[in-house]
Design a protein around this nucleic acid. Structure first.
Lengths: 141, 141, 141, 141
DNA sequence: GTGGTCTAGACCACA
DNA sequence: GTGGTCTAGACCACT
């Protein structure tokens, strides 16, 4: 599973990290509605994790409606696109809320928040551009 | 302690909520270098938590250098302003990182992030202005 | 845990005695990098102390980087050998400092310190040799 | 009181630090049998400490026989030289014991202990010599 | 009255 | 079974 990284030292439980990873793979379009997700067994092997842990993640995502299980066939991303889009929007909104709340708590003004974000995105762009240039032909005139 | 709110249902441990609360009270300037923080017992009473829980929060913050304790006298905000400023900056940077990482994972572009933040801040401003207008003179003619 | 002795009457807190004991077990090579240390409950039972006391010791040692904990799996000695060696050297240096400072405060000269140490080590050697001789063959003529 | 330094952050209680300080001042010959020690009030002022704390230190040292109080006259170092010498020897022996025990716990051999001490004393000598040279005339040939 | 330590015992999340 | 958190309540040392 590209895109699912487990940090065994993180405060966040592993099963939630799996949920997050899948959730975002869907949000990014890496996994599409109706796609089959790896079997619990496979996922457990590739992530080096206890199968029970994968099972718990799948179970909870099924509860949320994001996954659907067909016994004997495997587990699949729901075809309910509105649900998927809803999840994506929810995650994004939660991220904004967390960000604004935190910086407000630190006493930052709205302009400072925007500026902080802008400068971070700017520096990230430069880093990525630099990296990208390393292995590529310089585009000629 | 104004500014330290405990959510007993939150996933985050109470002692960390206390740490966050104090940390931000300092960041906002509500608590100043050298100020005395409430005694463990007082804080425990006002927050309705066990004194040991407060003690743990204080102990960890002392470890970080944010608090200093004088036996029999009480516990105080460190006078090391550079440390305090460092903590504030660290918290802000972490917030930005979490925000950008999360939204990148969801496949959003930089412009979308900026727009998302802008619209949130805009709507918050309106809400606050409306609230503020309730008890105030309407400005201007 | 061989090598961890608790003195309930000592001025030094029990949790620090546990830390010292583990620290030295590592320094002596009795516990090796990556080894599992007893679970908090086990350690508490064998030492006849409260599990919370063990937990505090473990937590502080984790903070120092000496221990690492894997949720649900147990607690382990760090694999970072340089850190371990650093701790050993630090403990040794601190012991020397304490010794020299104390004897300097008492007005002893450097030669006297060396002599004091030499005579102590000499007498200890004799005692150990005597003990050792009890159960052993007397070395031949 | 030259030679009595208080570390308010130390684990060791302040009253014990005072006891240690006086004890060593005597051991070094800075205070001699029969000498008057500062009044509790004076000592408290110079050390920036609560008078009760000084009182406790004096009281305990009186119990040990190191101090003698003459009401209305002040407090004095005992004239019992053998007692003083006994205390000095006891402190020295305790220091040696602590040193050897600690380094043994770390798995050091006798030769290593001697070497460690020798090198420390050597480096201290150099430092002191260097400092001493700073403010003095270089002795000409 | 302040912080420091310790105990006993409970519940939870995780693997 | 493992560590993590929390509560309740005790005792101590220091000021």
């Amino acid at each position: 599973m590209r895109g699912v990284k487990i940090d065994f030292d993180a405060a966040k439980p592993i099963y939630q990290q799996i949920m997050d990873g899948l959730c975002r793979a869907v949000a990014r379009g890496e996994l599409r509605p109706g796609d089959k997700v790896p079997s619990q067994r496979d996922m457990a092997l590739t992530l080096r994790v206890n199968p029970n842990t994968v099972q718990r993640a799948y179970r909870e995502m099924e509860r949320e409606g994001l996954l659907e299980t067909a016994r004997g066939w495997g587990t699949f991303i729901t075809r309910d696109r509105s649900l998927l889009e809803g999840i994506r929007r929810r995650l994004a909104e939660e991220a904004v809320t967390a960000f604004v709340d935190e910086l407000e708590a630190l006493g930052l003004e709205r302009e400072e928040m925007m500026e902080l974000l802008r400068s971070r995105l700017e520096s990230e762009r430069r880093i990525r551009d630099d990296h990208g240039a390393e292995g590529e032909e310089t585009p000629g005139p």
